[in-house]
Simulated scan of single mutants.
Amino acid sequence: MADIGYLVLLFYLIGGFVAVYSNCSNGWIRNDDSCYLFVDLHRKTWLQAKSDCEARNSHLVVIESKAENDFVKNQLAKLHPGTEDQFWTAGNDLVTENNWVWGNTSDIFEVSFWHPGEPNQSAGEEDCLTFYTRYRFDWNDEHCNKPMPYICEVEDYIDSGSIIG
């Protein structure tokens, strides 16, 4: 038994840290270091969707790269072909008009994939970001109080910490 303890200690000292990648929960879809849940049966306003994702220990999806944007678009195309749906993301300009940020961090967008002519404030007060099927899942600004499907994201990387020695 002492040999096993020695091997575990050696593993920690050589590795420096331990990183664990767990599987996504049932119904969630993995992409890189995140898991995504596409919620379409229970349409919610942006604020309700944000709260529901948080209750699931996640957040509305935050797009950090073209690869991630393409992944979400491809999943939406598979799951919702031919619909007119829009899907909430964490993006919004609720605090300052035309200052688009991610709702869970308040970080300004590092990348954007707006449909040409968007954001446009059509009919005023369009302050929340969606993927819009009509625009081939490009980004659209929309009224935050409309009940819509939404996408939750959770980073699936668990870092157990570093061993200093």
Rank of each mutant, 00 (worst) to 15 (best):
Y157M: 09
T45P: 00
C35S: 10
M148G: 00
S160E: 06
V72W: 01
R134E: 12
M1N: 09
Y21I: 13
A55K: 07
I108M: 07
D33L: 14
Y6C: 09
R43W: 15
E118I: 03
N92G: 00
S162G: 13
L60M: 03
L129K: 08
H115G: 01
F113E: 04
V18I: 12
C128A: 03
D40M: 03
I158Q: 01
Y157K: 10
T130K: 00
N120S: 13
L94K: 12
F11G: 08
E64F: 12
F131V: 04
C35A: 10
T133F: 06
N120R: 10
I163E: 07
D52T: 09
Y150L: 13
Q75W: 05
F113K: 04
I4L: 12
N69H: 07
I29V: 06
G124H: 01
L47K: 14
A123N: 08
E68F: 05
N145Q: 11
F87G: 02
V154F: 05
W46V: 01
L94H: 08
L94N: 09
N99E: 10
D159V: 05
L79S: 00
E68M: 13
R43D: 03
V8Q: 04
A67K: 05
S65D: 10
L94A: 10
Y150E: 02
G103D: 11
L41I: 04
K44M: 07
T133H: 09
Y12N: 12
A77F: 00
I164A: 11
A77V: 03
I151R: 04
E155W: 10
